[in-house]
Simulated assay, not measured.
Amino acid sequence: MAKQMTEMLKGTLEGVVLALLREQPAYGYEITARLREHGFADIVEGTVYALLIRIEQRGLVDVERVPSEKGPPRKVYALNTDGQAVLDEFWSTWGFLSDRIEALRTDTPPEHA
């Protein structure tokens, strides 16, 4: 089941991270910690950092460099309006897919067929 979970999570992790950033701006390690608090214990920091680079390049977040007590400044990511639009689309798609998957699982027609 772990391999299947990993593959499914790859397709949804961007939406999950955007949802976390909607709640509150954060830097990479904070995002990883918040993912773990929400039960995504197997996600490694490298995966999160690679995703943050992609969503920054796509213009879905605003980035602020904040001084750090240790080392270089931290990049704090905040969801912007483009990111919110992508998140809204993610939730819409998630609702559509989850309705149909649940209908298949329970062998009942979907409500919004």
Rank of each mutant, 00 (worst) to 15 (best):
S68N: 14
H38V: 07
R58Y: 09
Y77H: 09
P109H: 05
A19T: 07
K75C: 04
R34C: 02
A78T: 05
L60S: 01
T93V: 11
V61P: 00
P72L: 13
S92P: 02
D82R: 13
A113C: 07
E30K: 09
F90Q: 00
D62W: 04
T108F: 05
T108C: 07
H112Y: 10
T108Q: 13
T93E: 12
L51I: 01
E102P: 04
E56N: 12
V44L: 12
E89K: 11
R100H: 11
V76H: 07
R74P: 03
P67V: 03
T81R: 15
V16Y: 02
A78K: 09
G83F: 01
N80K: 05
Q4H: 14
R22C: 08
E69P: 12
Q4S: 15
L104Y: 09
E111R: 12
V86F: 04
A85V: 09
V44H: 15
P67W: 06
L87C: 04
V48K: 00
Q84E: 10
V63M: 03
G46N: 10
L21P: 01
E45H: 15
L51W: 01
A19D: 08
P109Q: 07
Y49D: 09
T6E: 12
D107F: 09
L79E: 00
D42V: 10
P110R: 00
S92I: 06
E45R: 15
Q24I: 08
D42F: 13
K70A: 12
L21N: 00
L35F: 06
E102R: 14
E64S: 15
M8I: 11
F40D: 02
A78Y: 05
E102N: 14
R74Y: 13
A41K: 14
